[in-house]
């Protein structure tokens, strides 16, 4: 009996020991950092900046290797992450709420966004509603009094940009007609300048140079504090509940990632973002970081998913 117990105890100890070993030495080899976007562009460069300083703050010296896995609106990268072993050697960038949209709208996908283990938030970018500088629309009230649907240029249905426009439309209460299919937010802004549509709702940072060049006028910003002189915030326009509407850029890992590894990575990302090199980069490129640790990121995701459920219009395709 005693022997049996001892045996069992030894077995348990061995099991514990090996479990401990799996995380104790982490990381022992290079970490793959999936980027569901083509090289170039805001997401890619932000992720690459973090990948380049992250190794400094990991317990062991390994590389963090960015891998662009663009295509099918991010579905390829998310599927790949979801299938990877939850050992901390594969992590990926996520764009919320866009990444949640396929499954929220009932599409069959090979991953479940609610089960992803979150490492942290890299940055967030509130949106701006902009119109052509030649447009008569100057305020939110003008949009409501337009007398016809506001034509909004957007990337495809089920993306963050499209979802934000749908939410804004239902909360503010105006009629909208979407013009979809543009490749990326720069192209939707070009579409507005060209006169394809009345307005675009896109990250404030993407709008910056178009506003400076005088091609685009900001109507309302979803920021807390307006970064464009003369452009009112959505709270000032009377819809404070829309403050912060925008894109959250997160880092996630496959379901089942051990909590120890989650903590190591989360802390490292937090430090990498405060690294002087990252701070200088953010200042130079005007792409500020906005770190959130793991548990707060989870809360942000939950909030975003709840928002989607609260505005069912955003999940329905417009005809």
């Amino acid at each position: 009996m005693v022997r049996k117990l001892l045996l069992a105890a030894t077995a348990a100890a061995v099991a514990l020991g090996s479990a401990g070993q799996a995380t104790a030495g982490y990381p022992e080899k290079d970490i793959t950092f999936l980027i569901p976007f083509s090289p170039g562009g805001g997401m890619d460069s932000t992720a690459r900046q973090i990948a380049s300083v992250l190794p400094k703050y990991l317990p062991n010296k390994v590389n963090v290797v960015p891998k662009n896995e663009a295509g099918a609106g991010g579905r390829l990268a998310m599927g790949q992450l979801y299938r990877a072993k939850p050992d901390g050697y594969t992590i990926s960038v996520f764009n919320i709420p866009g990444a949640a949209m396929p499954q929220m709208t009932g599409e069959k996908v090979s991953y479940d966004i609610t089960k992803v283990v979150w490492i942290g938030r890299m940055s967030t970018s509130p949106y701006l509603l902009g119109v052509s500088a030649k447009s008569d629309i100057k305020t939110v009230e003008d949009i409501k009094k337009l007398g016809r649907p506001l034509k909004i240029a957007s990337v495809g249905f089920g993306t963050t940009v499209y979802t934000a426009a749908s939410i804004a439309k239902s909360v503010i209460g105006f009629k909208a007609a979407m013009v979809t299919g543009y490749k990326g937010t720069r192209n939707i802004i070009l579409g507005v300048i060209r006169g394809d549509a009345d307005a675009a709702i896109a990250p404030t940072q993407t709008f910056a140079s178009f506003v400076r060049s005088g091609d685009i006028r900001g109507v309302v910003t979803f920021e807390e504090k307006s970064s464009y002189p003369g452009v009112q915030t959505i709270a000032e326009a009377g819809y404070p509940q829309l403050t912060g509407l925008g894109v959250e850029r997160l880092i996630g890992a496959p379901p089942g990632l051990p909590a120890e590894i989650q903590k190591i990575l989360s802390d490292a990302v937090g430090k990498a973002i405060q690294d002087p090199e990252s701070v200088a980069w953010a200042k130079k490129t005007k792409r500020p970081f906005a770190y959130l640790p793991a548990e707060k990121t989870q809360a942000a995701v939950d909030r975003a998913l709840k928002n989607l459920a609260d505005y069912p219009d955003a999940l329905k395709e417009q005809k």
Partner: peptide
């Protein structure tokens, strides 16, 4: 074949 850029989905 593949991603439908206009309506989303594959």
């Amino acid at each position: 074949i593949g991603f439908d850029a206009v309506n989303g989905g594959t």
